[in-house]
Design a protein around this nucleic acid. Structure first.
Length: 362
DNA sequence: AACTTGGCCAACCGCCAGGTG
DNA sequence: GCACCTGGCGGTTGGCCAAGT
């Protein structure tokens, strides 16, 4: 039995807002505020709209200082960086971009940025189909969340583009692997037959992993247990250089990365200052390169390339894909119910930037 | 000129968690 | 502890428009 709708849908107007409706809503809120009750708002104004629709219209369009379109390169970079780091937490990303709404950023990412960064995956995938050893595509398609895979792909692209002899491309520097990485490598080698240098480099075939570890590692991570391998954490668990916490806990929400965080408006600038212009410059350059298609070497294949792994299936079954980025030996989970902003610095933009530095400088 | 295709974006939908009685 | 209400979120849809055929 489903819950009751928030409003009487039969008597509620849907579709585009008229200028008159916009004016009425804007005038009322500017004069009286929302009154803390969006559901009751349309009745007070005399609008035949759902309260949630009013809220959305206000937040995404009528609110003062809203910017539409015309994303700058800096904004592109911030969006890409945060997406790689935290995934589709659009409200968090939007909080770092004054005047931008989560809806705007979401649309911008889905329609433009993603294609810019991953647009060539299709092409690569076509050639990969010849070497997939007959594994059914359907078995791949649902195994790994597209968001998580995109983030992995983007990060690996950045790492490999920066320096072909860097940590990620130099097996001699690789630490002991986790079993799921072993699995990935083995499968990728059979799938790609040498056509995937980035993936193979990033996930080398290590002799250090025993079967027991594999089984253990591929267990679902629902309980928040962290993956304890330095190579798994591509983006997390880098200590903050200044010990600062750019996000400030304020209130609560179902999702720790949502409204429970009230990012300081100057967070990005703070991270810029603390991490240093040199590091930021490296990231900026990389993102520029990708965004401008100046560098596009290997582009990982479609989602199914990595989706045949049981451990990824299990991870995907978890609601919080963030977990598998984690390398924190602490048992504190990053899941939505126990997240604490002060305890997970890796989710912060600063940690992300520092991780880039790690990948480049090694 | 007519039709098709694809991109863009505003708006809707359903889910979830916190608050409240 | 429970049920209900509300706010907030990310995912998805559908309409409009421009470009291509």
């Amino acid at each position: 039995m489903g819950r009751a709708p928030c409003c009487d849908k039969a008597n509620v107007k849907k579709g585009p807002w008229s200028p008159e409706e916009d004016a009425a809503l804007k005038a009322y809120i500017e004069k009286n505020g929302t009154g803390g009750n969006w559901i009751a708002l349309p009745q007070k104004i005399g609008l035949k709209r759902c309260g949630k629709s009013c809220r959305l219209r206000w937040l995404n369009y009528l609110r003062p200082n809203i910017k539409h379109g015309g994303f700058t390169e800096e904004e592109d970079n911030i969006i890409c960086s945060l997406y790689i780091s935290i995934g589709s937490r659009w409200s968090i990303i939007a909080a770092q971009l004054p005047g931008r709404t989560d809806n705007d950023i979401k649309n911008y990412w889905n329609t433009r940025l993603k294609k810019k960064l991953l647009g060539r995956r299709k092409q690569s995938n076509l050639s990969a189909k010849d070497t997939n050893n007959g594994i059914e595509e359907n078995s791949y398609s649902n195994a790994l969340s597209s968001s998580a895979l995109e983030r992995l792909q983007l990060h690996m692209q950045l790492q490999s583009l920066q320096n072909p002899f860097s940590f990620y491309n130099n097996p001699a520097l690789w630490p002991k692997l986790h079993p799921f990485q072993e699995k990935m490598i083995q499968s990728l080698q059979s799938l790609n037959d040498g056509s995937s240098p980035v993936m193979q480099n990033a996930l080398p075939n290590s002799p250090h992993v025993e079967q027991g570890q594999k089984d253990e590692f591929c267990k679902p991570q629902h309980d928040g247990a962290k993956i304890n391998n330095p190579q798994v954490h591509l983006l997390e668990n880098i200590p903050l250089s200044n010990g600062g916490v750019p996000f400030v806990a304020s209130g609560s929400s179902k999702n720790p990365m949502h409204s429970s965080l009230a990012p300081r408006s100057e967070a990005i600038h703070e991270q810029t200052n603390s991490v240093g212009f040199q590091q930021l410059g490296a990231l900026q350059t990389e993102l520029d390169d990708i965004l401008n298609n100046r560098i596009m070497g290997y582009v990982p294949h479609e989602d199914h390339d990595m989706a045949g792994f049981d451990c990824f299936r299990e991870m995907n079954s978890s609601k919080d894909s963030l977990i598998w980025w984690s390398n924190d030996s602490d048992t504190k989970s990053v899941s939505s119910n126990s997240w604490d902003s002060s305890a997970t610095p890796a989710l912060l933009p600063q940690g992300m930037f520092q991780d880039y530095e790690l990948g480049y400088s090694l």
